[in-house]
Amino acid sequence: MFRKNIITDEALVKSISAGGRSEARALEYLIDKEYPKVLHFVLQHGGNDADGDDVFQEALTALVLNIRRSQYKGESALGTYLFAIAKGVWFKRIRKTGRDRDRDQEVGRSSETVDLSTPETPMIAADKRQTLLEVFENLGEKCPDVLFLWASGYNMEEIALRAGYSSAQAAMNRKNKCLKALHAQMDDNPILVDLLKNLR
């Protein structure tokens, strides 16, 4: 077994914000370091391996989103923060199935330093997810990327740079154009509005 280099939280946050291969490497590092702990926790609390995979991915997704949106302030170690999110995800999941007896006590303990209230964090049912993805993919040239970057918390300068626009204003114009196309889709496709009610 080879011991991997230790990467600081600061470097991980920077890599995740940068996106691309740098982000993937940071995620791989977090998977190696934190996944076993989350899996152990889930197994200890009545879950199985598949639950462990789901919970960890859900927590990692929330972590990435929070980092991109600058909601992670570095007040706790990244691993601790990720683990706390994972515990919250797991207890939320078992609250639905009523599998855990001590959940309220545990949730209170795990959530004290982590804000898990981002509205889009909950997963969407598979069929609705597909509809959502298809709608955005068909909004027009570069719209999926521009809206993804904008909703991920990047400012217009960064969006211009990443999406290949000459200025922040050009990126802003594109963003608004894409949003208008989305509005048109919402008029034509009321299921999109209903979709938001189906967040679980």
Partner: peptide, 14 residues
């Protein structure tokens, strides 16, 4: 529309 876009970003990130 913003919520839908946020949901889309979250799904894509997921």
């Amino acid at each position: 529309a913003h919520q839908l876009t946020s949901a889309y970003a979250a799904e894509r990130t997921r």
